[in-house]
Amino acid sequence: MASITLHNLGKLYAGGSRAVGDVNLDIADGEFIVLVGPSGCGKSTLLRMVAGLEEISEGEVRIGDRVVNKLEPAERDIAMVFQNYALYPHMSVRQNLAYGLKNRGTPKAEIERRVNEAAEILQIGPFLDRKPRALSGGQRQRVAMGRAIVREPAAFLFDEPLSNLDAKLRVAMRLEIKQLQKRLATTSIYVTHDQLEAMTLADRLVVLNGGKVEQIGTPLEVYRRPASAFVAGFIGSPAMNLIDSRAVPHLPGTAHAGMVGIRPEDLTLAPDGPIEMQVLAIEELGAQRLVHGTTGGEKLTIALPPEGSIPDSLRLSYRPDALHLFDRKTGKRIN
């Protein structure tokens, strides 16, 4: 178990293109950090740099009190769970779990003990002598987790481990990963493009865009006070409405901002509200109802309780502190 520090971390490819730049992050011992962003934002590259699978071109990675820049992946005392699980197909589950320990010269009895312990935690005991191809997606996922935990490493690295599972299993495994990490209290870095996964798992989120850190914070901090228009639009479902302030000139206090953001759930129906909305489509989600439309030519979505009928035109109101204001050029938050 250890803390991890990323200092001015950057990745430049041979052609001169930049994948990641200027990442600074202090991860406390036992903390669960989620790197989240759209595809191509550099989150996997960042993780692979920590793992040692990708060369570090700028800055420093520290695990515990060691700078690991020049160390081989095996020497960094980390374990990684891959998106496609990367189980060794020709080895039984038991051999898969034991491989890393065997390579490190762990005594046989100790390997046996740790494998059985991990198998019990993950409930994969009955499959220990099967080959990975005889397992379902969820079971393979557990074996991949097991391979990480038998090593008792300083940190777990997860590279989109749930994206190959179906939706229902994904929700179940998400919860299990969370509980497991709490129980083992091992420092973890988890990469995902799914903002819901990020919100539910993270102690702290790191939102990345174009190889740059947009915001670091707890899920609620990021949700309540997104640091930029990008974060505002990326975190939260349904996504926050981002409206050009020129489309709503009558809203007080928005004149100096380029963009006005307001979450669909922060808008309420009010007969004398300041915003007028033309309704285009309604989505029934059961627990709530999403109404899509326009105001002043800009798209707008609101989340309402699923009651009553919706007329073609609505008037909406909001709490003043629910407005998020962003600079037009930089996209940075200004209120």
């Binding site: 990684m80 060794y88 020709h90 890393g100």
Partner: peptide, 27 residues
């Protein structure tokens, strides 16, 4: 052979020669 298998083996502490004989050659 997926690259991630060799990467997983590298993290599991297998050097290049060992990776070849434990992972690549059997596959």
């Amino acid at each position: 052979i997926p690259n991630s298998l060799r990467e997983a083996a590298a993290i599991d502490g297998a050097g290049p020669v060992r990776r070849f004989f434990d992972i690549t050659f059997p596959l």
